[in-house]
């Protein structure tokens, strides 16, 4: 399994950050996606290349501010767990951490890259610079 992690410091209270990026249905507002649909414990996300990933929501813990999901029913992806943590940095601001572990290993790099630009966009939105 390949594993990567991306972190982003956000000058914003963790509760505010969590309200935004912790909402599974708002992923397309900050992640490089064109569409996102949630039904119960299921989520479907679509990229600009037209690819759709079906996902199972594994965990949505508002106390811990942790979201976990896994890509399912995908002929290419044989193993996956994605985790988003929103952490208080000790100064009332946010450390957002997105990690993904998957097989094929190298696809983790691609998800990680998308998460990196996604977190930067979330930061810009939350800090009001866009």
């Amino acid at each position: 399994m390949g594993t990567v992690r991306r972190e982003q410091h956000i000058e914003c209270p963790p509760s505010t950050t969590w309200d935004f990026i912790g909402d599974p249905a708002r992923l397309h507002e900050w992640f490089p996606l064109t569409d996102c649909r949630v039904e119960g414990k299921k989520r479907w996300v679509t990229t600009s290349t037209g690819l759709t990933f079906e996902e199972d929501i594994v965990l949505l813990d508002h106390e811990l501010r942790r979201f976990q999901y896994t890509i399912v029913n995908n002929p290419l992806v044989t193993g996956h767990l994605g985790t988003l943590d929103v952490i208080d940095d000790g100064h009332g601001h946010t450390l957002a951490v997105y990690s993904t572990t998957m097989k094929p290993d190298v696809l983790a790099l691609v998800i990680g890259g998308a998460a990196g630009v996604g977190l930067k966009k979330a930061k810009a939105i939350l800090e009001g610079t866009v």
Binding site: P32, T47, S48, L51, V110, A114, V117
Partner: peptide, 14 residues
């Protein structure tokens, strides 16, 4: 820019 680009992030692929 990377060739493996399922998210369509890179100009070369678009």
């Amino acid at each position: 820019e990377p060739v493996v680009d399922p998210f369509g992030r890179f100009v070369e692929n678009k």
